[in-house]
Computed example of a mutant assay.
Amino acid sequence: MKRRKNMAKVLTSGNFEAEVLGAQKPVLVDFWATWCGPCKRQAPIVDALEEKGYLVGKVDVDQEPGLAQQYQVMSIPTLIIFKGGQEVKRLIGLHSEEQIRLVLDQI
C-alpha cells in the first residue's frame, strides 16, 4: 500500500475556525516550518495519527504568522490539541506517536 504524503489538512487563518475551533472531536494542530529539522521528523508521526482516525491539521508558521502569534507558538514543532474550541494541551518539541496518542486518548 502506497502512503499518501502531506495527509493532514493545511490550516490557514481562513479555515482555522471552521476546521479546528468548530470541530466536534478533538483536533491535533501541528505548528511547523519547512526549514525545521525536528518538524520534518514530526511530520510522518502526525500523518500516522491521522491514518489512525485522529483529526489533524498543520499550520506552517511562515505562511501563517498570525496564527502562530495568536496561539503564542514560540518554538517548533509545537502540537496543540483543541477540544470544544479551546486549547486543552500543548506539546513542544519532537514527540513519539505513542506519547501523542497517550495524550489524545486522555482528552
Score class of each variant (00 low, 15 high):
M1H: 07
K2N: 13
K2H: 12
R3A: 11
R3E: 13
R3H: 09
R3G: 05
R4T: 11
R4S: 11
K5V: 15
K5P: 14
N6T: 04
V10C: 01
L11T: 00
L11N: 01
S13N: 11
S13K: 11
G14Q: 14
N15P: 05
N15C: 07
N15Q: 01
F16Y: 07
F16G: 05
E17Q: 03
E19C: 10
V20G: 06
A23W: 05
A23L: 14
A23G: 11
A23D: 13
Q24N: 15
K25L: 10
V27G: 07
V27C: 02
L28T: 09
V29F: 07
F31D: 04
W32Q: 06
W32D: 04
A33D: 06
T34W: 00
W35M: 06
C36P: 06
G37F: 05
G37V: 14
G37I: 08
P38S: 14
P38D: 10
P38N: 12
C39Y: 10
K40R: 15
K40T: 13
R41N: 15
Q42G: 07
Q42L: 15
Q42H: 06
Q42T: 07
I45D: 00
I45H: 09
I45R: 14
A48W: 00
L49Y: 08
L49K: 09
L49R: 10
E50P: 13
E51K: 15
E51I: 04
K52V: 13
K52D: 15
G53L: 10
Y54H: 12
L55F: 12
V56Y: 12
V56N: 13
G57I: 02
G57R: 01
K58W: 06
V59P: 11
D60V: 04
V61G: 09
Q63N: 09
Q63P: 00
Q63V: 10
Q63Y: 03
E64T: 11
G66Q: 11
L67C: 08
L67E: 05
L67R: 10
A68V: 05
A68N: 02
A68Y: 05
Q69K: 11
Q69N: 10
Q70H: 00
Q72W: 04
Q72A: 14
M74V: 04
S75D: 06
I76E: 09
I76L: 06
I76Y: 00
P77K: 08
P77N: 06
T78R: 02
T78S: 14
L79V: 13
L79G: 10
I80T: 08
I80G: 01
I80Q: 12
I81L: 09
K83M: 04
K83R: 14
G84Q: 07
G85Q: 02
Q86A: 13
Q86C: 01
V88K: 01
K89V: 00
K89C: 02
K89Y: 10
K89R: 09
K89W: 03
K89A: 12
K89S: 13
L91V: 01
L91D: 02
L91F: 01
I92Q: 00
I92E: 00
I92A: 00
G93H: 06
L94I: 07
H95C: 00
H95P: 12
H95D: 06
S96Q: 10
S96R: 03
S96A: 02
E98F: 03
Q99H: 10
Q99M: 11
I100L: 10
I100N: 05
I100T: 05
R101M: 11
L102F: 06
V103N: 08
D105R: 09
